[in-house]
Design a protein around this nucleic acid. Structure first.
Lengths: 188, 188
DNA sequence: CTAGGCTTCCTAGAGGTCCTAGGCAAATAA
DNA sequence: TTATTTGCCTAGGACCTCTAGGAAGCCTAG
């Protein structure tokens, strides 16, 4: 019987595609095995368990997102950089809802440290170099930006903004204007 | 054999307690049945299915949260109201992590309309009466505030802020200062 | 080239969750 | 008291997770 050629990497990649198709919460070992035409038990030589699979997926998505943000950020500064960062973040979430959901998993500290999570914080700090902010305000601003981006995207995806006719796109643009204005005159 | 006296309301209430103890994602029909010393199948006379149970829990949590915010908001305006709103929101999320996670469920439009979701938007608008904002800026600001609060709380709970020594409490206070300042000089 | 050894994938099976169908007994109404 | 409704039961199917142990593919050394 021909082998399917499974590896942890291929499984993780397929899990990512699966997540975007059926939702992160529906990424199961069984569904993944089905996709490879293989029995469930076969996957356990490559991944420890279902949780391990989801963690690998989260790490993959964090790295992808960091890459996208990083390349959008290159050569920009100030409000330009802020907008590029925010839009890269949001477009990734829209194009890859399952992967994005994965990035919101609670990772244990060791895994988080090894993941691209640190790169995200570093890039946010890079955006802030275009504004006149120093510690501890810089950390506060990093947290505020991250919160706002994540909050907006996740509420948007949950449908929380559908109840009002005002365009979601327009509110987003205004939010970025507001954040830029806020960063330029950060209260002391 | 004595009856357990199940009703949809008692089940929902127990599900809420269960959610806070073991996490929203672990609220299962089986676990709930166990808690009442009853077989799984018995619950299906009261709830349609597992999804229905989670929706009921979400609706309950939304109502509780709206009540708390509402009572904290009474008699306050301006920044006072903003801070009270934000803290009520955040403290509910901390005290009731499982219930809070439930409020983030995607509800279908009909259910959402019947729930307290509308009251939340209305209360946020009430906070904004202390600032000089009119449509469509008001809606944009509602969305920004909601995003920031939700984003902050959910990243905080996911442990995203643990990697840096700066106090989470201090950053929160500064975020509220920043939002107040932003609302007072909303860019046009 | 062929014989061991490792790896990959298999079968078998236990245990958990979700849910339906159909039955008996408790509570309530006539 | 009898009839009806309702609440909880047993039984069982479908799906998911995961372990143990077996066999067949692949690799390397003699």
């Amino acid at each position: 019987m021909a082998r399917a050629g499974l590896t942890a990497e291929r499984l993780t990649q397929a899990a990512a595609e699966l997540a975007d198709e059926v939702g992160f919460e529906n990424v199961t070992v069984s569904a993944l095995a089905r996709r490879f035409g293989v029995k469930d038990a076969s996957l356990y030589s490559h991944i420890r368990n279902a949780h391990d699979l989801r963690v690998r997926l989260a790490v993959l998505a964090l790295a992808e997102l960091a890459d996208r943000v990083s390349s959008e950020l290159a050569g920009r500064s100030g409000k330009d950089a802020l907008v590029a960062f925010a839009n890269a973040y949001r477009s990734y979430a829209h194009e890859h809802p399952g992967r994005y959901a994965a990035t919101q998993m609670a990772l244990d500290p060791d895994t988080a440290a090894l993941s691209a999570a640190g790169k995200h914080a570093e890039m946010t700090r890079a955006v802030l170099r275009g504004y006149d902010l120093w510690e501890p305000d810089q950390t506060d601003a990093v947290r505020l930006l991250h919160s706002t981006f994540h909050g907006y995207v996740s509420l948007e995806r949950a449908g929380a903004f559908h109840s009002h006719p005002r365009g979601v796109e327009a509110s987003w643009t205004r939010a970025l204007d507001a954040l830029d204005s806020l960063l330029r005159s950060w209260p002391s």
